[in-house]
Design a protein around this nucleic acid. Sequence first.
RNA 1: GGGCGUAUAGCUCAGUUGGAUAGAGCGUCGGCCUCCGGAGCCGAAGGCCGCAGGUUCGAAUCCUGCUACGCCCA
Length: 590
Amino acid sequence: MLHTKAHIKRLISRALEKLVSQNILPESALEREIHIGEPKFKDHGDLSTSLCLQMAKEARSNPRQLAQRLVDAMELPDSMLASVEIAGPGFINFRLSDKALHDGLRRIVRAGDGWGRFESRGVKVNLEFVSANPTGPLHIGHGRGAAVGDALARIMRAAGYDVTTEYYLNDAGRQVRLLTESLWARYTEVVREQYPEIEVAALPEDGYQGAYVTDMARDFARQYGPDMARSGSPDRDLLRAFALRWATDMIMSTLSDMNVKFDVVYSEKKLHDDGKVAHALSVLRERGLLYEQDGAVYFRSTEFGDEKDRVVIRSTGEHTYFASDIAYHLDKLERGFDVLIDIWGADHHGYVPRVKAALEALGHDPDRFQVLLVQFVSLVRAGEKVSMGKRSGNFVTLQDLMDTVGGDVARWFFISKTHDVALDFDLEKGMSEDPRENPARYAQYGHARAASILRRWSEDLGRSLPDPDGVDLSRLELPEEQELIKMMMRLPEVVKSSAEKRNPHVVAAYLVDMVRLFQSYYTQYKNDPVLPRASSDPASWNWAKSEARIVWVNAFRTVTRNALTLLGLPAPDYMKAPENESDETPNEKN
RNA sequence: GGGCGUAUAGCUCAGUUGGAUAGAGCGUCGGCCUCCGGAGCCGAAGGCCGCAGGUUCGAAUCCUGCUACGCCCA
């Protein structure tokens, strides 16, 4: 549809130029951006513009009259347009010709997997998300960030951005020391089951209580044996490295169940070891933006719009997380990224101004740093919110959730709504228990259905996929068929809009709308099927119509698959009926 | 007290960047399986777009002020 919109814009701007040269319109008419929209009502045509309503004042004319002059000045008839009408207060409505639809359909088939993908625009984007501390299991809020981030990466890549996804691993701070001590304590407990005489190390006061630390300790004991515990002297480097690797593996495995992977895992420790933190602070110091007070070192972030100055080095000599974050974001820019996008939980929103302040202080445009704040996810059980504090005992991990409902269902749930609205996940209704209420399955089902038709065409009837250039597409006469073509033609601009809004739910909403059109067609025209019935006589069958419809079904399948892929969801060719399966999630790769 | 976000059908949410008559799903009610996959489809009921002003040809959308909820910071 971008293609046809551009075509209409050219027609209009040529007409405007003509009117300006005849002194009917002022020069300023050429500067206005021409916006072509899709009207809500079908009787208003396929595309429309309110340009004349907007221009009426400066043109000193009433909108309808202006519209009439504009239409008269357009080079019509045009092969892409079946009609051009002036309507209402001064809208110009365009109806697409059959040729425009057929060209569009052919373009989709020709593009295949490339439909909805744009040429590179040469913009390097760093997209950082999740970045949870490697000290325990992910919670459900992390899941939302992960799903949104991964889908956004796919969509922005399709829109032509050069995207690198990144996980910032906080492996340097106090939390990791605590995890190390917690592992040591649990390890001694585990070993004491065999060697009752040894002394158990106490769990630190703020240590990690979760049962997973004991699992970790058992793995440690299995790998390194009981000697360290028996000796009573911990090898902290070894324990730390083991704990980090174990926790990171656990996190990545959970993410992988949701089909989320990262291009880069960036270590905070390495940031320090490579001197990046010292580097960033020295740049700030050179610029006179650091000062000392009560033994701590402050950054003058108030000079850049923050509400108060922030500590970068504590009186103990330790760097704050903020100091690492400054260095990290500076490093991203120095690695050549044009745009930095971070996905954070909404509770961190207060952190945004200080990071922007730091980047500005370091001489960069703060608008290159963008933060997507993702609102909270709460769990609901029996109509009541479930408290999810780690201490409350009914902490539900992301892994638990996916084990219950399946990775792609969880993923769909997270991206199907805009990120700036709080979500309730109802455990009791549980999307897995009634897949009919599940739009992800609905979309996949549409794909499987189309795949099934194509399969019967090639396998049962022994025919090959027709070349769209050799098929008479005018056999697609039903209004539903034409509506679906227009819908499919919209994918590229949906991708563009979703990427620009930084919001994957745009693609999700589009996908469901498109599949609904197909399902509606499918059920309504069961007595006028795509394929010949077994009972019918092949000689009397309208093969030309079947061929046109097969091209159309194939295009639908392609566009559906492309949209599912953009969201990181599988596009299965077969799906099992839910009645026969308990809660197993189909996960076929096409 | 300051800041960020949200407010649209009984419930969960869309709303193409200010356009024409407000859109889905779930739930409710009523229909559709000799038929390419019923995980489906068709129809009906359901609305003061939180409230009050403002901007203009035109507002769910933009501006101001309230109210309620969530979250940050004091």
